[in-house]
Design a protein around this nucleic acid. Structure first.
Length: 297
DNA sequence: GTCCAGGTTCACG
DNA sequence: CGTGAACATGGA
C-alpha cells in the first residue's frame, strides 16, 4: 500500500470510464447538485464536494482534507460495470436511442433518508421546484459544514431526528403544502426506529417496497425511487407521468394503459436491471422535451 | 384564468 | 378492483 493513499488530501481523481457525470447528476435522481458550466457542487453526507468531469474519470475537490475516499466511490458507484448491465436490458430501438444519447448515465447510491424525504416532497412538483424546496429545507434545518469561501452549499440534509423535532407548521412555511404532514410522519417513523431504512437493503425487494409503502404519502412510485436510488435494487422501475407517456407511446402504440398495468409490464419486461432502463428513458424524455420548450434549469 | 408538475389518498361504483 | 377528485404551491 502506498503511503500517499492514506495522506489526507482535498483533491482526488476517481479513475473510471463510461461515466457521464453531467447526465447522472442532472437526471432527477438527486436534487442538491448545482452546475456552474463545468463542475458540479453538492453535499454528500457531511462533506461539501465539487466534481469535475476528467479525461480519466472524475476529479473531486473537498473542503476538508480526507484520507479515505470510499464515501465518494460508494455514492457514485464507480465500481459498477455499466456495459455488463446495459447488455442485460431487452433490445428496443427507443431504449437504444436513449442509451446512446446519454451513454454513461449511472445510478447513484444515495443516503436512504435523504432520498426518501426528497421524493416525499417530489409528488406533483417539477424537478426545478423539488430542488428549490430541498434547498430551503437544508438551509433552514441542516447542520453547517466546512465549505470553501464564497460557496453557498454549506448545510447537510437534515436528519430524520432533526425534522421529527420540528412542527408541521415550520415545514409548511417552506412551501411543502400537503406534503408537510407526510414528511413529518416519515421523519418520526425513521427517527424512533419503527422504520429501519438501512435494513431494507438486505431484504427481498417486495418486502422492502411494502415496508416503505406503509409510510403515509409513500406509494409505489416513491417507494421504487428509494429502492432504486438509495437501497441498491436495480430492478426497481418507478413509473411516473413521464414513464407512463414513454411506455404508452413506444411500447404500446399510444394505447392508453393504466399505471397498474404498466408497472406489471415493466417489472417482467425490463428485468433485473430495469431501473437503468427507466433512468435512461426518463432522462431522455425530459431532455427531449426541454429542447422543444426552451425551459429547464 | 387554466393546466400541469418524477403522486398519494380517499370515496364511490 | 377500477376510476376520479382533492390535496398546496408555483410556473408556463
Amino acid at each position: 500500500m502506498a503511503f500517499t493513499e492514506f495522506t489526507p488530501r482535498r483533491e482526488f481523481l476517481v479513475r473510471v470510464s463510461d461515466y457521464n457525470l453531467d447526465a447522472t447528476l442532472d437526471s432527477g435522481q438527486a436534487f442538491r447538485w448545482r452546475f456552474n458550466g463545468r463542475s458540479w457542487t453538492g453535499v454528500i453526507g457531511r462533506r461539501w464536494v465539487r466534481l469535475t468531469p476528467h479525461s480519466e474519470g472524475i476529479h473531486a475537490t473537498t473542503a476538508a482534507p480526507t484520507a479515505d475516499w470510499d464515501w465518494l466511490t460508494d455514492y457514485l458507484r464507480t465500481q459498477v460495470s455499466l456495459g455488463t448491465i446495459l447488455a442485460r436490458l431487452p433490445h428496443h430501438p427507443f431504449l437504444s436511442t436513449a442509451i446512446q444519447t446519454h451513454y454513461g448515465l449511472r445510478l447513484l447510491r444515495q443516503d436512504p433518508w435523504e432520498c426518501l424525504a426528497s421524493f416525499i416532497l417530489s409528488s406533483t412538483k417539477q424537478i426545478v421546484q423539488i430542488k428549490e424546496i430541498v434547498d430551503r429545507l437544508c438551509t433552514a434545518y441542516g447542520d453547517l459544514i466546512e465549505t470553501p469561501p464564497r460557496e453557498s452549499m454549506h448545510k447537510t440534509f437534515p436528519s430524520a431526528q432533526q425534522i421529527a423535532a420540528l412542527k408541521e407548521s415550520e415545514l409548511r412555511g417552506l412551501g411543502m403544502g400537503f406534503r408537510a404532514p407526510y414528511l413529518m410522519k416519515a421523519a418520526q417513523s425513521v427517527a424512533d426506529g419503527r422504520c429501519a431504512l438501512r435494513r431494507l437493503a438486505k431484504q427481498p425487494v417486495h418486502i422492502a417496497r411494502s415496508t416503505l409503502m406503509e409510510l403515509a404519502g409513500v406509494g409505489r412510485k416513491i417507494a421504487d425511487c428509494v429502492l432504486l436510488f438509495a437501497l441498491g435494487f436495480d430492478e426497481a422501475f418507478p413509473v411516473d407521468v413521464w414513464m407512463m407517456k414513454t411506455l404508452q407511446s413506444h411500447w404500446f402504440a399510444n394505447e392508453p394503459i393504466s399505471r397498474r398495468r404498466l408497472i406489471a409490464f415493466a417489472e417482467t419486461h425490463f428485468g433485473c436491471y430495469g431501473g437503468y432502463a427507466q433512468q435512461y428513458l426518463f432522462h431522455f424524455a425530459r431532455t427531449q422535451q426541454a429542447g422543444q420548450r426552451s425551459d429547464e434549469h
